[in-house]
Design a protein around this nucleic acid. Structure first.
Lengths: 228, 228
DNA sequence: CGTGTTATTGACTTCATTCAAATTAGGTGG
DNA sequence: CCACCTAATTTGAATGAAGTCAATAACACG
């Protein structure tokens, strides 16, 4: 078996678990029409696979992972969502992923638009949802190439560059996620992720400070070449 | 929008014609407003990665693969498109994939909608494009799970069931694609695909007639269990 | 400072790939 | 209809990249 993220079982069960253990702290919405702000603790579930998709979300601060589980516990993380990103868009009326906060995270929940209204309505919000959907599709498609045809080192390099492009501050990337999350995103194991990072560090391509939760990109050119 | 003469001088058509082995055979569109019909020979290129995305397409008959290449020639097939499927939707103005006919294939080309119009406009066509985009996203996301976390046998089983759900006639699936295409879709090699099929046949789960281009699903339950 | 969690490292195994060869299908021209 | 040819597929044997199992190390936090 691969990296089993040991959350108990199926969608129904985890929906129940969510009610028990997650701590959504609803606050007064900044403006009713614009959605309501909610804060989640590290690891808290924002929604579960199979939950009714009544809202879509925009990350205000922190970070979110959306993932799917196989029956035996293998997990695949579909995407990481950073501030400004919209997630939870669905065509049907159920969430096909679960979403969890990677750290203390604040999101804005917007009441969901039915698909029909999406096409019918012209508004900034509508446009944003269509754009977010297209972006999600593009990301998913390039992730398919990564998972289908790239080796471990290429995956790590591509991941670091992608993240750097989204949240780097002068070449330093502060990872909002654990090695397990990285592994489950890249279709690898935590050990392989660790070994690849060590190898990149030995080559002088990156630098990993003591606390291990940030990475300095020393040679983005080399990463680019690796990533393809 | 689309006129009978629009096919003659556009960027896409000439880009396609430039390539050696594509043979688009423009015919009179069934209805000018609804797009123009084009037929492609087996292996012909409908559009290439980087081509200007002036049209989107619906498969009328036959089948199409959309794929990406890495610099060293590794290929990943993003999706197979069967009659009724829409492909070639882009947010930007370039195709990020190439598209090739899997056999003698007829498609209908629709002049592309700009993203802004998509959100602004309410029409059957708009709705179809939004729906097709959502469907593509859902497919891509479940393919990510397959590529990231499923083993060879699980991938083959899932592939056969998916295809059966789209084109089976009483349990028989006529494969429009070669083993290489299947391998490049599932992130495997042609040898592994062949071995997996052989094993499924030995188990009595499937049956592969002599010409090897169709497969009879004898035990979909077993496939379902394998596919997860 | 302990304690629990997360990450790294090492040794060994395994599943899928690679390399190589054999077999089969399907088209072509006699 | 058959012999021949080419491309596609299958099969076998050996290799290798990433996974598994196990132990250690490094943090983070109370």
């Amino acid at each position: 078996m691969q990296t089993a993220f040991a959350t108990a079982g199926n969608a129904i069960a985890s929906a129940a678990v969510r009610r028990a253990y997650s701590q959504p702290i609803p606050r007064a919405p900044e403006s009713p029409a614009l959605g309501s702000t909610r804060t989640f603790a590290k690891g808290a579930e924002i929604f579960a696979e199979g939950d009714r998709a009544a809202f879509l979300y925009k990350v205000a601060s922190g970070a979110v992972r959306t993932s799917k589980l196989l029956s035996d516990g293998r997990r695949q993380i579909d995407a990481f969502h950073l501030p400004g990103d919209i997630f939870g868009i669905e065509a049907g009326d159920e969430h096909r992923f679960s979403a969890e906060a990677l750290g203390e995270t604040t999101v804005i929940a917007y009441r969901r638009w039915r698909l029909e209204n999406l096409a019918a309505n012209d508004s900034v919000a509508t446009r944003q949802v269509v754009t977010a959907t297209m972006r999600a599709l593009e990301r998913a498609q390039s992730h398919i190439l990564l998972l289908g045809r790239k080796n471990a080192m290429e995956r790590i390099a591509a991941f670091l560059l992608d993240l750097a492009g989204r949240i780097s501050e002068n070449g330093q990337v502060d990872l909002p996620m654990s090695r397990i999350d990285i592994a489950d995103y890249l279709g690898l194991t935590i050990e392989t992720v660790s070994r690849s990072l060590t190898q990149l560090e030995r080559q002088g391509t990156i630098e990993v400070p003591a606390h291990r939760r940030s990475i300095v990109l020393r040679d983005t050119g080399a990463l680019q070449r690796l990533a393809d």
